[in-house]
Design a protein around this nucleic acid. Structure first.
Length: 306
RNA sequence: CGCGGGGUGGAGCAGCCUGGUAGCUCGCAAGGCUCAUAACCUUGAGGUCGGCGGUUCAAAUCCGUCCCCCGCAA
C-alpha cells in the first residue's frame, strides 16, 4: 500500500501543494525542480521555491537541466504517480511512460479555457468573473490531456493576481489529496477536453504592463490587478517608471491621462482610476498618501502614453 | 564581476553638478479662531545629512571605502 509518488514543480504556486502532499500519508520518493538560475540583482544563483522547500522538508531533490537525463533514475524509482505543478520543462513521451498512473497536472484554469503559461493573469486581464482549477493527465501536447476534476472559484471584486494565485494554490493543496486517492484506486474518471472551445493564455510580456490612458478604466484596472505584483502595470513620468500596485475605480472622466485631483485620481478613456498604492522606479512601494507628500504628480498634469 | 537609482528630523521629498546659516509637504506638541472639525492662523520640539576615512580654513555637497534598500534586465 506504500505508493510511490514524485513531484515536479518550481515556483511559489507549487509550494502549498507539495506541503500538503508531504503532510499527508503519501510518501514522496523524489522532487524535481528547475536548477538554480542566475537571477535578480547581481545575477546570483538562486534556488527555486520548491527546491528550497524540499531541502527544508528533507525530501530527495533533483534539479537536472534536462529531465531526460534522469530517465534511468526515474525508472528505478518505480513510480505509481507523478504530480506536476508548474515544473517548467517539457515532458517527453518516454518520461510520461514512467509512472503507472500517469503524470497528473494541476492547471490554474477551467480547461479547456486558458491553456498555457499564464492562466491566472490572463483570466484577470480578461475580466473573467470565475476561474478555477483543473486536474488533468498530461499528454505530450500543451495542457490538452483529459480532465478528471474541475474546481471553480469566483474571482473577487478588484482581486489581483497574487491574491488569486494564493487562493488557487491553497485550493489545489486541499483538493489534490482526494484526487491522488481516486487515481491510485483507479476510480478517477478522465474526460477528454472539448478542444473546439479552447483558449490560450499566452506568456506575459513586460511591455504589456505599459498603461494606455485611452483605454477604459475597467480595462486598465484589470491590467493593474492581473499583472500584480510582477511585472506590474506602469506609466512613465519624467523618465521614471511608476508602477501602479493597487487602484480603485472612480467615475469621473476628463481627458485621458489627466490627474483629476490631489489624490492621484487619473482619468482614463472612460471613467477613471484612483491610485492607492504605487512604486516609483528605484523606490519602495508606497501608500498613495506617502507618495503624494513629495511628489510632483499634481492635479492638472496630463500623463502621456509613452 | 549584467545595467542603473537611492539612503537628509517620525513619514515622503528638495538641496549635491557650481563646498560656506538644514529647506518643502505632512505628522507631532502648545496656543488661537470656530457651534465645531481631519479646515484655517501662530508658535514650538525633533536631524551624528547611512558608517568610516581623505581633501579643505570650511563637506549633506568633492574623493575613497564599507553597509543597507530598490528598479531594470535575465
Amino acid at each position: 500500500m506504500d505508493k510511490k509518488i514524485a513531484f515536479l514543480g518550481t515556483p511559489n504556486f507549487a509550494v502549498p501543494i507539495l506541503k500538503s502532499i508531504h503532510q499527508s500519508n503519501y510518501k514522496i520518493s523524489c522532487v524535481f525542480s528547475q536548477p538554480p538560475r542566475k537571477s535578480n540583482r547581481g545575477h546570483k544563483l538562486n534556488k527555486s521555491p520548491i527546491h528550497l522547500l524540499s531541502e527544508e522538508l528533507g525530501i530527495q531533490i533533483k534539479t537536472p537541466e534536462n529531465i531526460e537525463k534522469e530517465i534511468d533514475y526515474i525508472k528505478s524509482l518505480n513510480l505509481d504517480l507523478v504530480i506536476v505543478v508548474a515544473y517548467g520543462q517539457i515532458l517527453s513521451k518516454d518520461i510520461l511512460s514512467l509512472s503507472k498512473n500517469g503524470f497528473i497536472n494541476i492547471h490554474a484554469s477551467l480547461l479547456p479555457k486558458w491553456r498555457g503559461a499564464a492562466p491566472i493573469q490572463r483570466s484577470l486581464i480578461n475580466m473573467d468573473k470565475i476561474t478555477g482549477l483543473s486536474i488533468m493527465k498530461i499528454n505530450p501536447k500543451l495542457d490538452e490531456g483529459p480532465v478528471c476534476n474541475k474546481y471553480p472559484l469566483d474571482i473577487l471584486e478588484n482581486e489581483n493576481a497574487k491574491s488569486l494565485a494564493d487562493r488557487l494554490s491553497n485550493l489545489a493543496a486541499e483538493k489534490i489529496l482526494p484526487n491522488i486517492e481516486n487515481i491510485l484506486q483507479q476510480t478517477a474518471n478522465f474526460e477528454e477536453q472539448d478542444s473546439s472551445t479552447a483558449t490560450y493564455a499566452k506568456k506575459i510580456q513586460k511591455i504589456e504592463g505599459k498603461i494606455n490612458w485611452n483605454d477604459g478604466a475597467d480595462e486598465i484596472l484589470a491590467k493593474i490587478n492581473g499583472l500584480y505584483p510582477q511585472p506590474g502595470a506602469w506609466f512613465s513620468f519624467e523618465n521614471d517608471r511608476h508602477k501602479i500596485l493597487r487602484a480603485t475605480l472612480s467615475k469621473t472622466t476628463t481627458r485621458p491621462g489627466e490627474i483629476i485631483d490631489d489624490e492621484l485620481t487619473i482619468s482614463c478613456g472612460n471613467k477613471s482610476i484612483k491610485v492607492t498604492e504605487i512604486q516609483r522606479e528605484g523606490k519602495k512601494p508606497q501608500k498613495i498618501r506617502d507618495f503624494l507628500l513629495g511628489s510632483k504628480l499634481k492635479k492638472g498634469i496630463i500623463l502621456k502614453n509613452e
